[in-house]
C-alpha cells in the first residue's frame, strides 16, 4: 500500500497532482520513466508518468487528468489515503546528455512529464527553451515550475486566455527559423500535438523525441497491448519506450489504437456513478 502524502488540484476538477510515498521507486526513477498504479482490488492498472521525485523524502509526484473511471477513482482519494499498488520504474530512462540547446514542447498533462525531463536536461547543463500549451488558462499546468528551470519559456493557449493565442507549433516554428543552435526538440502531449510538432520539425530536419502513452496493462513487456509502429517495426512502448524518435512513429495508428476502449470506458464510468 502506498500512501498519498499531498494532493493538489492544478486545474479545477480536471488535472490533479499527487505526492505518493514510494521510497524505493523514488530512489530509482529517472526522467522519462513511468509507473503503473492500481487504486484498489477491482481496479485497472493504469500507466502514469512521474512529474517529479524526492529521493530523500521517498516521494514521487504524479500528475493526471481525470478522463475515465480509474482517474476519477484516484481523484476520490485524499491525502492520507492508500493506493493499492504502485509499480515502477518502468520504461527506459530518457538519454540525457549535454548537447547544447534543447526545445521542450509540452501540451496538456504532457507538461507534467516534460517538466521532469526539462529539469534533467537543465541539470545536465543544457540551455532549455520551454514551450507549453493548453486549451485554456484553467488547464495550463506547472507554468511557474517550468519558468524556474527554463532559460526561456513561451506559453500558448488555444483561446488566448493566457500567453500567446494559438498552438505550440507556432512559437516552435519561430524558434526553428530564428535560432540555429537548437540540437533537439522533445515533444510530450496529446497525440495530435506530437504529430504536428514532428511534421514541423521534419521540415527542418530537426531531431525530435516524443514520449508515447498507449494503452497498457502490465507495463512490463508482457502483453504487447502497447505496441506501436516505429519505423515500420512493432515496438512495445513499455519496454522499448516510452520515448521514441518522433519522425519514425506511426501516430495515426497509435491514435486509432488508443480509441479502442472509448465505449467501455464510458460504460465503466457510468456504472461507477450509478
Amino acid at each position: 500500500m502506498f500512501q498519498i502524502i499531498r494532493k493538489q488540484e492544478l486545474a479545477k476538477g480536471t488535472i490533479i497532482k499527487m505526492d505518493v510515498n514510494a521510497p524505493k521507486i523514488a530512489k530509482k526513477i529517472k526522467a522519462g520513466q513511468f509507473i503503473i498504479l492500481r487504486v484498489n482490488e477491482t481496479g485497472e492498472r493504469i500507466p502514469l508518468t512521474v512529474a517529479d521525485k524526492d529521493e530523500f523524502a521517498g516521494i514521487i509526484t504524479i500528475i493526471f487528468q481525470i478522463v475515465g473511471k480509474t482517474t476519477a477513482l484516484l481523484n476520490s482519494l485524499k491525502a492520507g489515503d492508500l493506493i493499492k499498488d504502485v509499480v515502477g520504474p518502468l520504461g527506459k530512462a530518457a538519454e540525457i546528455e549535454n548537447i547544447g540547446t534543447v526545445v521542450m514542447v509540452g501540451g496538456g498533462t504532457g507538461v507534467a512529464i516534460l517538466y521532469h525531463m526539462a529539469k534533467a536536461f537543465k541539470d545536465a547543463g543544457n540551455r532549455v527553451i520551454g514551450i507549453i500549451g493548453a486549451r485554456d488558462k484553467e488547464l495550463l499546468i506547472l507554468e511557474d515550475e517550468m519558468n524556474a528551470i527554463c532559460d526561456e519559456l513561451v506559453v500558448t493557449t488555444d483561446d488566448g486566455s493566457h500567453g500567446q493565442r494559438g498552438f505550440v507549433t507556432q512559437p516552435l516554428e519561430k524558434y526553428l527559423d530564428e535560432r540555429h543552435d537548437i540540437k533537439l526538440v522533445y515533444a510530450i502531449g496529446p497525440i495530435p500535438m506530437m504529430k504536428f510538432v514532428t511534421k514541423l520539425t521534419k521540415k527542418y530536419d530537426m531531431p525530435t523525441m516524443v514520449s508515447l502513452n498507449p494503452i497498457m496493462i502490465d507495463g512490463t513487456g508482457m502483453c504487447g497491448g502497447c505496441r506501436v509502429k516505429v519505423n515500420n517495426e512493432i515496438k512495445f512502448c513499455c519496454v522499448d519506450g516510452p520515448d521514441f524518435d518522433g519522425h519514425l512513429v506511426d501516430f495515426d495508428e497509435l491514435e486509432l489504437r488508443n480509441a479502442t476502449y472509448i465505449k467501455e470506458e464510458k460504460d465503466s464510468l457510468l456504472a461507477s456513478i450509478r
Binding site: 492498472r45 502490465d218 502483453c223 497491448g225 506501436v228 489504437r257
Partner: peptide, 19 residues
Amino acid sequence: ESLINIFSSNEYLTRMNLM
C-alpha cells in the same frame, strides 16, 4: 497486425485472468 482487436495471447489472458 497492429489493427485494433488483434491481441497477443498474453494481453488477452492477462486481461481475463489477472485483471
